[in-house]
Design a protein around this nucleic acid. Structure first.
Lengths: 141, 141
DNA sequence: AAAAATTTAGTTGTATGCAATTTAGTTGCT
DNA sequence: AGCAACTAAATTGCATACAACTAAATTTTT
């Protein structure tokens, strides 16, 4: 029919939007004790994989711009998780590096995904399919 | 390995989070001319399906609470898309109904999903699978 | 080298989201 | 009826997101 495309249940975006927020909410419950938020956790994960990154490169990895990252990173610096340091060689860039506290958080953080995974009703195969399709979707959007 | 669960690429949430924001961004580009945002569009879709709903029932449909909806609905009222009216029978509830302007927007809005669909590289079958898996995921989270 | 174009963070302003609390109204129970 | 428990919106406070713009530094072009 004429308005079928406007049915919530026919759209792909809506359940993705809901899923995103709900998973983040679940994460945030566990983060309470670590005193971080989901986007901050993403920044930490990037830095755990590779320390000493610029704001820009973190942004590319996470698909976030400086308008979001700058204040977010400042909050993380206030909490002594990271250090922000203007780069000597290229004064435009700012290097983000982990503090000891930021590094140590990794142990505790590693315990959280398994806890969340328990609530996921998808089989491993379904999870892989879902991940593959989502990646296919975003690599084009 | 020990920290594999902390790899961005191993997680399910991250691509969903990215996909959600990117699709909404694409939507928002088209919404510019309609002067609405994605969450406002969601509210309109709910009301196009069933007019005269309470804040609470809209919230249940969209998985949003009053802390998000109340100011959002006020902005929509300012733009003359909806009317907020305290219910006579139960003074606790507020009925949200479409204005003529809000109703008329439906025509224009219906043109947007097809435009976006063009950029989706998934086959119809893949989209259906993705939708099914995402729904399976959120119905449990 | 000097001007123009580009790049990188930061800033500003607006709109979500959500936890936690508050206020007002309704229901249930005795 | 009277009061406790509950429910619906609204409010408060904080943390994202993002468009649009600015400031400063670097690179490219001429």
């Amino acid at each position: 029919m004429k308005y079928d495309v406007l049915k919530l249940d026919n759209q792909l975006c809506f359940p993705i939007y809901v899923a995103s927020r709900e998973i983040i909410q679940s994460y945030n419950k566990y983060f309470g004790e670590l005193d971080i938020t989901y986007p901050q956790y993403l920044v930490l994960m990037v830095l755990w994989e590779e320390d000493e990154m610029t704001v820009n490169s973190i942004g590319k990895r996470l698909h976030l711009d400086s308008g979001t990252l700058t204040p977010l990173l400042k909050r993380m610096e206030t909490k002594a998780l990271i250090i922000r340091k203007r780069c000597k060689i290229d004064e435009r860039t700012v290097k983000i590096s982990l503090t000891d506290k930021g590094k140590q958080l990794r142990e505790k953080a590693a315990k959280i995904p398994p806890r969340l995974a328990k609530d996921v009703t998808l089989t491993n195969e379904e999870s892989e399919t879902l991940k593959r399709l989502i990646y296919k979707l975003i690599n084009k959007e």
